[in-house]
């Protein structure tokens, strides 16, 4: 379980998160939405311990991510998969090396086993026979899929997605959304998706958290979100509620 208590984070004089309280039970699929710069990605990075909070606490399975020692932090991270916004593939490595790096560095040295796991995880994201390619030879959508295969390589309990569809065309975005939804259902992992793509929210999330001005403005189901009369929520949804978007959503 992930538990966030009174979380504060500022950059210089600029407060980004101002007292976040959130509990994410195991197996939940939650989307965190909000305008650009509202602190969604910062929240994800705080969750995995890539940043330290100024105040408050994030605990994952009882371990405080802000206070944990390095060894303890590594143990928790072994159970977390993280899909970065820009994929963040290691450009000096092949797809195979990218997908299996985590396993290799944590004890699995048998090349046959590594190749088998890489093929399995790549198949899970709909990719086949690209193990020897390098990231520069991949399209944006393929990079995201390889990054997802890498995030899933260690069979994590939690998967954190940072803007999984940003920068992708609508068709590829749909494919990624379907992939995330299927994986979440099939692997029964806890999924936390940071996005400002409301189509993604509608397709994947069971619960939505809306961040605004560093605080949680809304916490509920996608249906409740669309019915919300909060001004900030309505403003955020305005663009999505255009007739074209509504038609696409309905279809």
């Amino acid at each position: 379980m992930i538990k966030i208590t009174n979380l504060h984070k500022s950059f210089g004089e600029q407060p980004v998160l101002r007292g976040i309280d959130l509990a994410i039970p195991d197996g939940e699929t939650i989307a965190i939405i909000g305008q650009s710069g509202c602190g969604k990605s910062v929240l994800l990075k705080l969750m995995i311990g890539l940043m330290k909070p100024d105040d408050g606490e994030i605990t994952i399975d009882g371990v405080s991510m802000g206070k944990a020692k390095e060894r303890q932090l590594e143990q928790v991270r072994l159970h977390i998969g993280f899909l970065f916004q820009g994929a963040a593939l290691f450009d000096s490595m092949t797809v195979l090396e990218n997908v299996t790096l985590g396993l290799k560095e944590h004890g699995e040295r048998n090349p046959d086993v590594l190749a088998k796991i890489a093929a399995e995880k790549l198949a899970l994201v709909g990719l086949h026979g690209i193990e020897q390619r390098t990231p520069v030879e991949l399209s944006g959508g393929m990079k995201k899929r390889v990054a997802l295969a890498r995030a899933l390589a260690t069979d994590p309990k939690y998967v954190l997605y940072d803007e999984p569809t940003t920068g992708l065309d609508p068709v590829t975005s749909d494919q990624i959304d379907n992939l995330v939804r299927d994986l979440t259902a099939r692997l029964r992992v806890t999924s936390i998706i940071v996005t400002h793509d409301l189509f993604t929210v509608e397709r994947i999330a069971k619960r939505v958290v809306f961040l605004n001005k560093g605080k949680i403005y809304f916490d509920g189901t996608p249906d409740e979100l669309y019915k919300s009369l909060d001004v900030a929520v309505m403003q955020f949804l305005q663009r999505y509620r255009t007739p074209v978007a509504a038609a696409v959503a309905t279809s």
Partner: peptide, 14 residues
């Protein structure tokens, strides 16, 4: 700057 260092850390690699 391309978050590859963060990616290493997320894989529990120092």
């Amino acid at each position: 700057v391309t978050e590859q260092i963060d990616a290493l850390e997320s894989l529990a690699i120092s």
